[in-house]
Design a protein around this nucleic acid. Sequence first.
DNA 1: CGGCAACTAGAACGGGTGTACTAATGGCAG
DNA 2: CTGCCATTAGTACACCCGTTCTAGTTGCCG
Lengths: 207, 207
Amino acid sequence: MAETRIILADDHPIFRDGLRRLVLRALPGSIVTEADNFSRVVDLANQDAPGLFVLDLHFPGFALEKSIYALRRDYPASSILVVSMDDEDETIERVMAQGADGFVSKAANPATIGDAIASVLEGDIVVVDAKAAAASHIDTDGSDIAQLSPRQRQILRQLVLGHSNKEIARELGISPFTVRVHVSALLKLLGVKSRSAAVAAAKDFGF
Amino acid sequence: MAETRIILADDHPIFRDGLRRLVLRALPGSIVTEADNFSRVVDLANQDAPGLFVLDLHFPGFALEKSIYALRRDYPASSILVVSMDDEDETIERVMAQGADGFVSKAANPATIGDAIASVLEGDIVVVDAKAAAASHIDTDGSDIAQLSPRQRQILRQLVLGHSNKEIARELGISPFTVRVHVSALLKLLGVKSRSAAVAAAKDFGF
DNA sequence: CGGCAACTAGAACGGGTGTACTAATGGCAG
DNA sequence: CTGCCATTAGTACACCCGTTCTAGTTGCCG
């Protein structure tokens, strides 16, 4: 719950984004900084030693047989978690032998990765290979959103843009009163009590 | 802007999540359904032929030399975009030769992938290899959020949970008046005009 | 120690939000 | 054709939100 600093390195923007979301979910209130190459990782760590490194296994400047060891030496108080596409047993062994605190396959489901992040920061040693990853049967969470009427989805999109009822009315060419009817119905369907919560729910789905 | 249906297939949950967000950004109002294996893709397409398939190159049940052709044949009106980690020239050639409408490297930055999705749906043929992907210099968008005070970040976390000022006050053990002061300051710093917009901004960052 | 920033609390005001009604229209399935 | 649902519009009411004040208390940096 503290102000843990976390340095996240991966050269694939989509993956980096996904990992940041996971970290912020697993460790609410933590401060995540990102890098897409190893020298940037070192820069960031020099500015302020993090509680945790979350590292991809293949990104510019990173060398398995050197980089983990270097971080271990220079930032002994920081935990190191490696997240990799390559989850061969041999690779995992080499990573752990270099002194990492954890290894997680990128094929693992989000909840599992989140748990691993939290555990490693607690001081545990964690290994999640492809077999332990488990097929995350696809979220039916979207079902709430999928069952909205077309107009309601349209309204929801406006809410996500932070628009007021008046602005939405102008945008869609209908009365503000009508907008309120739609919003009210929307909140009931999403099972939330305020438009802010509706925005949060929609954004969780990716809206 | 219509109600375009899109089927998204990838067996890596994090990547699938990221792609869904990209699709929903690139095509607001579209309806995205997901699959982590090819037979599920076919099931979904049979229920309702999509305007676009967004497919990973390696996932259970998918065979490059058969599956793209099969979709082309059974759903001739649907566009097909392949998104792959493997962005060798030879692989791209094989994918396009099978009749895909587009190919995008997973290393591409989100904006580029989003553009590709929109273009393919417009009927264009698009190829984005690793060289065209361009290093998406890391978003400093988070800077807005990074410069918040600890208390403000704490308040923001509460906003994202959809809590009212009264609830936040109870949660943090302070007066509702004080909460309003924090929220007001927060909105100014984030450059938004309402708490809903603040939630949207925070969620975009991954909060 | 003096000044600055963060956090706290409250008053006052204008406007926004959410619910509960009534009511009318158009479309589509049975 | 009839009933149901989505959409539209309005009224009324209670409550919440966001801004702008003033003002007191920390704690830290120079």
